[in-house]
Design a protein around this nucleic acid. Structure first.
Length: 584
DNA sequence: ATAGGGTTAG
């Protein structure tokens, strides 16, 4: 027994597998493998410590003399749940249930099992575990219930997740933060932000995790004012100084909400910066079209001794393509692999196609697609197609479209683009062919939507939206916008309010003539906010030409700054012009 | 003794 005690002490201080193997040998030599305290320690080290070895733990486990204890199973289930094959945890759990060695799992077992279900997307097992948890009587455990909430959400069952959350007997701060994170990951940002109100009403407190989750949702929907409120409580509690996640999330939030100044201010104040901090700035500058500044931050990142990753390069390439920095784009695209051994992915190729395409170098854009490993991805052909629309290149446009057809990937937007190209060169038969194609094949459109934050509330508008209680007022305002733009504008501007022939063709295909969601959001914003307030909106599609010109006019007529984040970049409208210089 | 939460890109 004295031998066992000494071995346990050794195990306590064990920090490598090399040492562990020696101790393991001693355990066997001394016949102590049947001592549950000793074997549990051995297993726990191999299966769960950072210096451990999961496969060794399995080997060890399979050689343990019966009876096995719950600790043994739990160690293994825990180790697997964090490892490369979380599904093994489910198998182990099943094996434990079948074996007679353990009468029943405990709350800790379920924590690990649910983590594994979360990671391996095991929806059925999640439901089954839920049943067992209720039956065995762990449904009063905050930790287990929070795990269930997360597990459901991660399996795409956000309603079940919320139901679980609502029905748990008590909720602590972790539960609340988890619910925010679940909504955020599910893309339900309005819901995530609503949780904050509830938390405040109930006085559950707020911490760094709350701040980060909320900021991520603010970033996604462009809710700057909400984000500023989060910063206020973060500052008040000193989160910013001691937690890098908070600073990073703030930098990202400001950049994504169109406030590069805000992003820079937080960035400058941060004492410590990591890859996320730099990347958030680089990507932020990139999507705003400030390729040159993105490059300078990239250089500073290198000087600070940080290694860029593929996200850093994505930011650089976005900046280069939006700013038309073709030479730099080529340089960094090559540097990515030659200096940093990073493989470009679809997104990087997309930037290159976009960069060449928009610069009018369509042959080079085509070459990028052909030489890339992603030439079977519709996104690249679609990017080329948009470039062909800008440059009115019928033949290349048809090539791009044919490739989309071969991939069975052409959608209504693609048809509209090609129709627009035909219309641009006065080929009305081509336009008619596209119309027919859309009609005959019943090709579906991507529904467009726009978010706008007004007085701390995030509103979502869809194309032709009539679901809001103030719909009538909104459409009245819209009418006013259009008529003021038409009557006050110059002859040139007037022609833009009346959609040009080519855009009429596109719009007709795209959304059946319904009103674009962003114009509804802008009308709503004008209606609900005072005169100097900037409007910040985020949308899922790219800004169309009509909306772009109308927004420019509105910014002049109403004296408002309007900041629009579309699917690929930012547009800052002010005094009748846009930061993209009409090049997007 | 063993349990739960966060950031960029997708």
């Amino acid at each position: 027994m004295c031998r066992a005690a000494s071995l346990l002490t050794h195990l306590q201080g064990c920090n490598s597998m090399r040492r562990l193997r020696k101790i393991h040998a001693q355990v066997i030599v001394n016949g102590l493998l049947s001592n549950p305290a000793v074997s549990a320690k051995l297993l726990a080290f191999c299966a769960t410590s950072a210096a451990g070895d999961l496969s060794y733990s399995r080997l060890l486990f399979s050689h343990l003399p019966p009876p096995l204890h719950l600790d043994h199973w739990n160690s293994l289930i825990r180790g697997s749940s964090r490892g490369p094959a979380p599904i093994d945890s489910l198998r182990l759990y099943n094996a434990m249930a079948r074996s007679s060695s353990v009468s029943r799992p405990d709350a800790v077992t379920f924590s690990f099992l649910l983590k594994a279900c979360e990671r391996s997307k095991a929806t059925a097992k999640c439901r089954e575990a839920h049943g067992s948890i209720v039956r065995i009587g762990f449904s009063s455990s905050v930790i287990v219930c929070t795990n269930l909430t997360r597990c459901y959400a991660e399996n795409g069952l956000i309603d079940d997740s919320r139901k679980m959350f609502d029905e748990m007997p008590e909720r602590d701060l972790v539960s609340w933060n988890s619910m925010i994170a679940c909504y955020c990951r599910a893309g339900l940002h309005e819901e995530a932000l609503k949780i904050y109100d509830k938390m405040r009403v109930l006085g559950v407190g707020l911490d760094e995790f709350t701040a980060v989750g909320l900021l991520s949702s603010c970033a996604h929907v462009g809710a700057l004012n909400f984000g500023i409120q989060v910063q206020e409580f973060a500052e008040k509690n000193g989160f910013l100084g001691r937690n890098i996640y908070v600073g990073n999330a703030l930098v990202d939030m400001y950049a994504k909400c169109g406030s590069l100044d805000g992003a820079r201010q937080v960035f400058d104040r941060m004492r410590r910066r990591d890859g996320f901090t730099w990347n958030s700035m680089i990507v932020g500058l990139g999507v705003h079209g400030h390729g040159d500044e993105a490059i300078s931050f990239f250089d500073r990142m290198l000087m600070a001794g940080l290694r860029p990753n593929s996200v850093s390069f994505l930011g650089l390439l976005m900046g280069c393509s939006h700013q038309g920095l073709v030479g730099e784009g080529i340089k960094y695209f090559q540097l990515m692999n030659s200096e940093f051994n990073l493989q470009p992915d679809l997104k990087h190729y997309g930037c290159m196609v976009d960069m060449f395409g928009r610069a009018g170098e369509l042959e080079k854009a085509l070459e990028v697609i052909r030489s890339s490993p992603c030439s079977a991805d519709p996104v690249l052909w679609r990017t080329l197609l948009s470039a062909c629309k800008i440059h009115k290149k019928v033949e290349m446009g048809e090539t791009a479209f044919e490739n989309l057809s071969h991939l069975s990937a052409h959608n209504a937007g693609d048809c509209a683009l090609l129709a627009g190209i035909y219309a641009g060169v006065g080929d009305s038969q081509g336009v008619a062919r596209m119309r027919k194609l859309v009609k005959d094949q019943g090709i579906k459109t991507t529904p467009g939507w726009t978010w706008i934050e007004v007085h701390g509330e995030v509103r979502k508008f869809v194309v032709g939206d009539t679901s809001h209680p103030d719909t009538k007022e909104i459409y009245e305002k819209l009418k006013e916008m259009i008529s003021r733009a038409a009557s006050l504008g110059s002859a040139e501007e007037r022609s833009k309010v009346q959609p040009s022939k080519e855009d009429a063709a596109v719009e007709g295909l795209e959304n059946g003539g319904d009103c674009h969601s962003e114009m509804l959001a802008i009308a709503f914003g004008l209606m609900k906010t005072s005169e100097e307030t900037s409007l910040r909106i985020a949308k899922n599609l790219r800004v169309c030409k009509d909306c772009h010109s109308l927004t420019k006019m509105v910014s002049k007529i109403y004296g408002r700054e309007i900041i629009v984040r579309d699917r690929v970049r930012f547009h800052h409208f002010k005094g009748g012009s846009c930061s993209c210089s009409d090049y997007w």
